[in-house]
């Protein structure tokens, strides 16, 4: 297993090595030590490899990930797994703002809490937060599933499109055009599927409430002027 120490070499060198891996690489499991909160670690990966990072990462770790599994034992800065396309990013600790922002696919699992704007503009990613999420989460969320085992902060799902937000705890407030919805069998199956992928199949789906778009802001209308 390749072992890379970020105390000895820059992030550029690590990312260049990871980007240069051929599709049929045998080096499928990487160990990264001393990340030291550095930014852009393991971003832009495009191979089905596993990257284990021992320690805290800075901004945009795992950004735009495709295929790779990135396992972080620590906390993360802003934009963890931003714009992920596929693969997995899992972190044991907390994530700062905009975790999973604009993610198009794949799975992001946050063992601790996530700060503000978790899942902002998400476009198909599945995000599971074991703890709670901060304010303005899932702002303009377009598609995908945000599953929160704890509580949600203020203005959840403001201006939301078609993403599904499953929250087990309390919601401080809902944003414009976001409402609680009845969970259909399809919604429940989707939730169960995401929980299973996150190794949380034991968590009962019935313990969640579903939030999504009221779809009242989909067309401009003067009577909605106070919501714009």
């Amino acid at each position: 297993m390749p072992d890379f120490d970020l105390a000895d070499a820059p992030v550029r060198e690590l990312n260049a090595m990871l980007h240069a891996l051929p599709p049929d690489t045998n080096e499928t499991r990487w160990s990264i030590r001393n990340p030291g909160g550095k930014h852009a670690i393991a971003c832009g990966l495009d191979r089905a490899i596993t990257v284990e990072i021992a320690g805290h990462v800075g901004y945009y770790c795992g950004g735009m990930n495709k295929h790779a599994t990135i396992l972080i034992d620590g906390n993360a800065g802003v934009g963890l797994g931003e714009n992920m396309m596929s693969g997995e990013v899992r972190i044991t600790g907390d994530a700062s703002q905009a975790a999973g922002a604009t993610g198009c696919g794949g799975l992001l699992v946050i063992g601790g809490n996530a700060s503000a704007r978790c899942g902002i503009s998400m476009k198909g990613i599945d995000i599971v937060v074991m703890g709670s999420i901060g304010p303005m989460s899932a702002f303009m969320a377009q598609a995908g599933n945000l599953v929160v085992l704890g509580d949600a902060g203020e203005a959840l799902g403001d201006s939301i499109y078609e993403a599904r937000l499953f929250v087990r705890g309390s919601v401080a407030s809902l944003g414009a055009d976001c409402i609680e919805k009845t969970m259909s069998a399809e919604d429940e199956a989707a939730l169960a599927g995401v929980l299973a992928k996150a190794d949380l199949a034991h968590v009962p789906t019935k313990s969640f409430k579903l939030y999504g778009s009221a779809r009242k802001l989909y067309h401009f209308h003067v009577d909605n002027a106070d919501a714009y």
């Binding site: 992030v11 971003c43 901004y59 945009y60 604009t102």
Partner: peptide
């Protein structure tokens, strides 16, 4: 639908963050 794009970037705020965002795009 009448689509309104965001006016702020979702995952950075201010010039210090922008510097890190540019670094990320360069790394990718």
């Amino acid at each position: 639908i009448d689509q309104r794009s965001a006016c702020r970037h979702p995952d950075w705020t201010g010039p210090d963050d922008l510097e890190i965002k540019i670094e990320e795009l360069r790394e990718i």
